Structure formats: C-alpha cells, structure tokens
Simulated scan of single mutants.
Amino acid sequence: MKPIQEIYSQLTGKKKIVITMHQKPDADAMGSSLGLYHFLKQLGHEVTVISPTNWARWLDWMEGSKEVLDYELHKTESDKKLTEAEWLFCLDHNHFSRTKNMAKKLAEMACVKILIDHHQEPDEASFDYGESNTGKSSTCEMVYDFIVNSGHRDKINIFAAECLYAGVVADTGSFRFSSTHASVHHMVAYLKEIGLEHTKVHEALYDNFLENRLRFLGHVLSNRLEVNYQLNTAMMWVSKQETLKFDIKTGDTEGLVNYPLSIQGIKLVGLVIDRDEERKWSFRSKGNFDCNTFARKYFNGGGHFNAAGGRDTASLQETIKKFSEAIQENSSLLQ
C-alpha cells in the first residue's frame, strides 16, 4: 500500500468514484463517507456512496444520506456502480470482510483502491494507496486531514463540515476519550469558523430517538446489568425477544455499552445482543485493558485499544459463559 499523499496530484479531472464503509455504519463511518462525498463532488467527480447494509435512521439528517445506496436493497445498481468505478475509497474499515456481502465484489474489483482508516491491523495488501493511523480520533478527522493536506481546504462546505464533525463527536465520546488530541480541536475550530452550528449536530445525534429506546435502555440497565466487582467488570445482555418487544432498530443500542463505565472501579464492559444469525459483542474499557486483543482472541473481532467489537455463533447463554471464563483468564489484567 503506497502513501495516500501520492494521489493528491490525481484528484483533479473527472473520475467515477465509489465510497464504501463498514456494515451497520455508525456516525463516523457515515460522516466520513459523506464528508468525502461532498468534497469530491466539488472537484467534479461522479461519486456514489454505498453502505453494505442499512443504517440508523438518526443518521438521515446528514446531507447526502438520501443518495446513499443500501447494498442489500439495491444490489444490482450498486454492483453496476462498483463495476464502473475507477477509484474505490474504503473508509472506517480495513478488511473487506467488514462489508459483509460486498466483500467478494470489492476483492475482485480491478480499480484503484484507497484506504482511510484508524483501526488496528489493516489488510494493506488489498489496497493500492492509503493511510492507516490508530492514533487518530476518527476516520472523519483523517478525511479532514486528507482534504487539507491535499491543498483543498476551501472545498469543505457546510454539509461536509457537519458530517465530519458528527463522526469526530461520536468517536471521541464528545471529546472525552484520550484520542482527542490538539489536532481535533484545531479541526473543530476551523469548522466553526466556516459556519458550523455544533448544537444542531449534537441534537441530531443524541436527541433524535423514539420513546421506546429510552424505555429499552431503562429495562436493560435495571434487569440485564451484571457487575463483578472482584474483577472490575460489567456485562449486559439483550435477547432477541427483548429487541422485538421494544421494537429496537439499527442504531438504537448505540452508546448503551458505555453506561457501566461510569461505575467506580469498572475497567471492562461487555454488551452482547442476540441477533438472528449471531451474537454481537461490544467491549469498552478504561486504562490499560486492551479490548482489541481481547475481542480478537475470544470473539472473532477487533477494533481499538479501549473500544472493540466481536461476534459469536454460539447461543446467547453459551457466549455469556464464554465471556465469564474469558475475564477469569484475564483477571490479573483487571485488578
């Protein structure tokens, strides 16, 4: 994989470009994709954004979201765009496997493939150009850097600013995580200078849910939270029946895993949700406990040092037992 700086000189001139992200995209994945979309459109390119799956409805406020193709719903049109693409940008994921049913198609494409991502252990061999930087707060910050360093900061319009700011806010935990370096605040300062209304974005991200979600959160925290003070660990679980009872949609569980971290002494939190085909895990930690290694070793996952995800094909009860055994094995790291 060659340095992304080598494509700066190639940014001018009309190209057919596809931007894609990981399945079930969050604010950083969607925000970085649409932020880059608005930038490349201003340079005159023909740009299509494709999501491997559906996404949370509370991301629909982002300008351009109505133009995003859902690969599972619009496979024929999406495959046509992918086949015609001269450039493929892969944002907020570093393995094609994170794109679910798109993975095979992406691997077979012969176009120029460009990676922009901040997760660990990238599959560099699959990309022609790119940047992988785990020290960055978010992929949105990396897209901002890409635009600025290529000499086109003036092409960041208000729509791009809102999308990029949303991803930074989400992935830094509203600027609380250690990844919030000075560069993040410099970026936000510039976006404010060009007219960003940050309150509007915060309300769209955090004050844009239905009543059922609030009642669901209350139910889980009251009835599905188990705290192991001996191992400084908390775990929550959600059954398939509960997601149906509370009419939980994509994105409604976003942020739930963070709540138990507010408990004094807790170093690791695990949340497992029973899906149709598998059990989905989310992990969060404080301090020096490595969620990425933990997720990779026990739950076929990965991510960041203090935030990662995983999956398991075992039953809900079996995967909960596996988590309990795993934290026992790691007890010395949790003290």
Rank of each mutant, 00 (worst) to 15 (best):
K286S: 15
T319C: 11
K297R: 15
L334F: 09
I194K: 11
R57D: 11
N330I: 01
I147W: 15
V143E: 11
T83M: 04
S97L: 03
G310N: 09
V18N: 00
L316N: 09
V68M: 03
K245Y: 12
T199C: 00
A110C: 04
D252P: 08
H93M: 15
I273W: 12
R213G: 09
K286T: 11
I158N: 09
Q335D: 08
F127K: 09
Q5T: 10
S324L: 08
C90Y: 08
F294Y: 06
S179R: 08
A107D: 08
G309E: 08
Q328W: 00
H152M: 01
F323P: 05
Q10H: 06
R275A: 02
N94L: 01
N54Y: 07
R213P: 06
N208Y: 13
N232D: 05
L164W: 14
F159W: 09
A56T: 06
H202L: 12
S132T: 06
V184W: 05
C291T: 03
E121W: 05
K240V: 06
D128S: 09
E318F: 04
T233V: 04
I327C: 01
L244R: 02
D117Y: 12
F39L: 01
M21T: 15
M62F: 04
D274L: 03
E193T: 06
T139R: 03
K267F: 10
I50N: 13
S332H: 10
N157W: 13
L34D: 09
A234I: 15
L244M: 11
P3F: 07
R176D: 02
A326H: 06
M109C: 06
S315C: 10
W61K: 02
I194H: 13
C291A: 11
M142V: 14
Q241D: 14
E211R: 06
N306K: 07
H22Q: 01
V201H: 08
D145M: 07
Y206S: 03
R311V: 04
N223H: 15
L36K: 01
E6V: 00
A125K: 14
L88K: 02
K280G: 01
G135P: 00
K24H: 08
V143M: 12
A160S: 14
E141T: 14
K286Q: 15
S315G: 07
G270R: 03
A295I: 13
L214C: 10
S331R: 07
H304S: 11
H95G: 12
P3D: 00
K267D: 13
M30I: 00
L59T: 14
D70P: 02
L164I: 12
T180H: 03
D290A: 06
T233Q: 07
F283P: 00
K297G: 02
L115P: 13
P25T: 00
N288T: 12
S65A: 13
P260I: 13
